[in-house]
Design a protein around this nucleic acid. Structure first.
Lengths: 192, 192
DNA sequence: CCCACATGAGACATGAATGTCTCATGTGGG
DNA sequence: CCCACATGAGACATTCATGTCTCATGTGGG
């Protein structure tokens, strides 16, 4: 047939639905499909036509999260300059995705048995490689493994995003707080 | 009547039930009441006799978590020695409760509207006071707020406990990894 | 103008978890 | 020995989210 896709009536903006769902589920991970639909301004039926079920929706959100992370990783240019500068850029680029990331981070615990999306492994590897680069260049200490630093970064993103949404930390301090704690820790430095 | 409580047949070991539930829910936050009962080695009926419902069970777990945290806070003697030593002791004492803490930390997001247990505020305050003491003594930097350091500590506990349970970090490194990252950060130190 | 089609609204069935109930059982204490 | 009582097993109703269905509507394109 001739009409390839959606020639006449524009289908519901899938992107917008995903964004709305992400924003809602970030705040309340147990939100109903009904609530998700309302949040997106569409009916439950239409939501269901786009995503076969809650499962499919979460998977789509996972894909979205992975895309955002990979976009952030690209924009952060992890190979440029010092490792600490790259970490700073990385956190900045990740900021907008932190909420979604936190949601997916906790949601992953529920999948338990199932194999996790390969995208996360790639992302983990790229972040861990950055920390490894910092270790090899002598910038970072070598007694904290890249795997742990990566994991810790996720944890700080999640708690940071939550603290901001709860009003315990100002949104404008998000990047600074995370970067400074991750890189420098709580102790005062004598040196430069 | 004469028999005050459980004179004859010992009631189901409430403590044991709570421990089992904590262990299970730490791994799978969505576990069924049935599974919780099985994990504790009792029937669902008995579980219901002890805890009016899932809600009551979670509240009881929250109380348990608060108790453990306050016990840990006491054992860590936050007012003794340098603040960094106190932080080290604190993380060590919290280690056994980290899994439960992580569960409750994420579970709290679901309660959304409701007011959170006052116990957490007390605990937050004690931990934040420790960081503040470190700042006032000149040990800790002052540009990271005590509130954020407290929040970050929770996040590191959660991600640390999860990383251990996933096998990405060795259990024996738990305390070291968290303390070193929290206090010293990822950067190498030139000074002592 | 008419048709195609995506949408919204809602009815309906389904499955799962929950909460409540009864009853048989076994053990411990008097 | 007998009674009290906590327990386990299971039946049952209920609630809720979900998935599927139908139908009316409205709009855009031909």
């Amino acid at each position: 047939m001739s009409h390839v896709g959606y020639g006449c009536l524009m289908a519901v903006d899938r992107e917008h639905v995903l964004r709305s769902a992400a924003a809602l589920l970030t705040r309340r991970a147990t939100a109903t499909m009904d609530e998700v639909a309302k949040a997106a301004g569409i009916s439950r039926a239409t939501l269901h036509r786009q995503f076969a079920g809650r499962d499919a929706l979460v998977r789509a959100l996972e894909e979205l999260g992975i895309q955002e992370c990979e976009a952030a990783l690209g924009a952060a240019r992890l190979d440029d300059g010092t490792a600490r500068e790259a970490v700073r850029r990385l956190v900045g680029e990740f900021e907008s995705a932190a909420g979604l990331l936190g949601f997916l981070y906790t949601e992953n615990q529920l999948f338990e048995g199932e194999e996790q999306n390969a995208g996360w492994s790639r992302i983990d590897a790229r972040i861990a490689a950055l920390f490894r680069r910092g270790q090899e260049s002598g910038e970072f200490r070598i007694d904290l493994t890249p795997a742990w630093l990566t994991e810790a970064l996720y944890g700080l993103f999640a708690s940071g995003a939550w603290a901001v949404s709860e009003g315990r930390v100002a949104a404008k301090d998000f990047q600074y707080m995370i970067v400074e704690l991750l890189l420098g820790g709580a102790l005062r430095r004598e040196e430069s």
